[in-house]
Nucleic acid binder design. Structure first.
Length: 568
DNA sequence: GCCGTTTTCGGCCCGACTGTTTTCAGTCG
């Protein structure tokens, strides 16, 4: 019996209880018990008695004991028999929660989505107390859209929408401050919807601007302090706008940035002081309400250092305050080790990329155009690579303020060989190896290719280690644990590719890399000058894994990095 | 269902909006 099975059982119970219309506090007690186990760093065998944990009581403890001794839970079994499977899907319908679903099931015998549709079509639903004509119409409409709507959107699809709306708001005279909030601000790799917090005294004007400018498919809610819309284009994504007074902006931003678990911990902290946090400020013991100029001030009022949005995830960040000083920050980054130019498939010349990196105050950069195998990307032949190497040497004289390194992003070929000879690799300052082809090979073949690269003494780094595209494709699915072990063994760098399409490695693997002490580079893989800004997203992604700056080689002074690279 | 160094009962984070109601329940974040 492993911990995951127990966690899933407790969550399943919570879900089934919810669908029975049970007391929400009872439901959340099972969810909390699941979370208690989840957040405990220990494995099941390392705990003396999981039923003694805070948040686990008689009922949840019995489930755990059941699973440990009998391998199954009688409560799960009982509920599975009692609650029709079809009800679970109904929770995906906006506006439908446990209470309503339970009522539909109890009063009308509805068990499936099809049952629900026909009950609505024959107007049986609007006859129920608490339901009405509008609810019935809405259910029918949502049922039609259910299959076609993705439940989460990847960060790279949302980014242009966020940029557009932020610039729209910032340009409007009635808006004093505006910011994205929610999971997007916390740099989750996917988000369910977008949340904006807007400080203004002229709510109607701002609402009008948004209504007229955005391509809105549906108004979901339209109140004095909140407007919710479903965007039609470029994605059918839901967006919430919260309107507040200037003074309340910071507490509202904090509130809607979340996460929910972070807010719960903050509210508990407030309660210990007899304070109360709401989006409108912090109510002190004497009833006065404090508002803040910045989130730094807000946290400082609780005696806390600033917690970057990216770490405000499960509440445990408040137990890791001593790690914040070593946490990677954008200002720590002094180099970018992976980028392309017009020599292969980049959009800008060597000089333009160099000037772009100088503008970022970098002390070191590596030009890493593709190798010859990647014909679609105009990959460099050995001759052109040598020519580029000479050119970079010349440019170094012209740009003394930054260390220019000559590198390559060399393909690991489908047969496991490398695209360049060792002799040529030995001449380069920095060698990246990566996979761009034959993703569907079996895992052992993929691992054979990766081993050939990582064990080669001239290879310095493996780029985008899994080849995934967030929300789009899983990549070539290597055995990442094994890859990290090899990286440790051969002392090679593993990339965190900061391009929002990739964010490769994912957070859980970055945590594992740090555990093993594997060196990491955060690189933009820029194919365009504008892509150099991805460093920010990459750093925030790294923060989600609590990566310490010492482990990240592009925080290192050029001297330290160069000595590491020339170690052999 | 779980918790308690003011509590073994009465809270549980808190507030906005909608739709159904004539004062509020349910849902959502």
């Amino acid at each position: 019996m492993d911990k995951k099975t127990i966690i899933r059982a407790l969550e399943r119970i919570a879900l089934l209880l919810e669908l029975q219309g049970e007391n929400p506090f009872k439901v959340s007690a099972f969810r909390k018990a699941a979370q208690t186990l989840e957040l405990d760093a220990r494995s099941l065998s390392e705990m003396d008695d999981p039923t003694k944990l805070k948040g686990i009581g008689a009922a949840t403890g019995a489930v755990i004991t059941d699973l440990l001794t009998k391998g199954e839970s009688s409560l799960v079994k009982e509920l599975e028999e009692k609650v029709p499977q079809g009800l679970v899907e109904m929770l995906q319908i906006p506006g439908m929660g446990g209470k309503k679903i339970a009522k539909l099931n109890k009063e009308l015998g509805i068990e499936t989505l099809d049952d629900l549709r026909s009950a609505c079509e024959s107007n049986k639903v609007q006859a129920l107390a608490g339901f009405g004509k509008k609810t019935e119409e809405k259910i029918l409409k949502e049922l039609d859209q259910l299959a076609s709507r993705p439940d989460r959107y990847p960060i790279w699809k949302l980014e242009p929408i966020v940029e557009h709306i932020e610039s729209l708001l910032q340009a409007h005279q009635a808006v004093t401050q505006a910011s994205i909030a929610g999971s997007y601000r916390r740099t989750k790799e996917t988000s369910k919807d977008l949340d904006f917090v807007i400080a203004t005294d002229q709510v109607e004007e701002v609402k009008t601007l948004l209504k007229e400018t955005l391509d809105i498919e549906e108004m979901i809610a339209d109140g004095d302090t909140k407007m919710s819309v479903a965007l039609a284009k470029p994605e059918r994504v839901d967006i919430d706008f919260r309107f507040v007074k200037e003074a309340e902006f910071v507490t509202t931003l904090h509130h809607f940035t979340g996460s929910k678990d972070h807010n719960i911990r903050m509210r508990q902290l407030a309660k210990e002081k007899n304070w109360k946090i709401s989006e409108y400020g912090v109510e002190k013991e004497d009833g006065s309400v404090t508002t803040y100029q910045s989130e730094e001030q807000f946290f400082a009022d609780f005696g806390l250092p600033f917690l970057p949005p990216a770490v405000r995830e499960n509440g445990q960040e408040l137990d890791r305050l001593n790690e914040l000083t070593s946490l990677i920050q954008l200002e720590d980054i002094v180099s970018d080790l992976h980028m392309h130019t017009t020599w292969s498939d980049g959009a800008h010349s060597l000089e333009e990329m160099i000037e772009g990196c100088i503008a970022k105050d970098y002390q070191l950069m590596v030009i890493t155009d593709h190798s010859r195998y990647l014909r679609v990307a105009n990959g460099l032949t050995p001759e052109r690579l040598k020519e580029q190497h000479e050119k970079i040497k010349e440019l170094q004289k012209k740009y003394p303020s930054i260390h220019l390194l000559s590198g390559t992003e060399m393909d690991i070929l489908p047969d496991g060989s490398l695209d360049f000879e060792d002799e040529l690799l030995a001449e380069l300052d920095f060698v990246i190896a990566s996979i761009h082809s034959s993703f569907s090979q079996p895992q052992d073949k993929i691992m054979e290719r990766l081993y050939a690269a990582i064990s080669n003494p001239h290879v310095d780094m493996i780029a985008h280690p899994t080849g995934r595209i967030v929300g789009e494709r899983p990549g070539y699915e290597p055995d990442v644990e094994q890859l990290l072990q090899w990286a440790k063994e051969f002392d090679k760098i593993i990339e965190l590719n900061a391009n929002p399409y990739r964010l490769d490695l994912a957070v859980n693997w970055l945590e594992r890399a740090q555990e093993l002490g594997v060196k990491i580079a955060i690189n933009t893989d820029a194919h365009h000058l504008d892509h150099l800004r991805f460093m920010d997203i990459g750093v925030r992604h790294a923060q989600k894994a609590w990566l310490k700056k010492d482990l990240i080689v592009n925080t290192w002074e050029p001297k330290k990095l160069l000595s590491h690279l020339s170690r052999d």
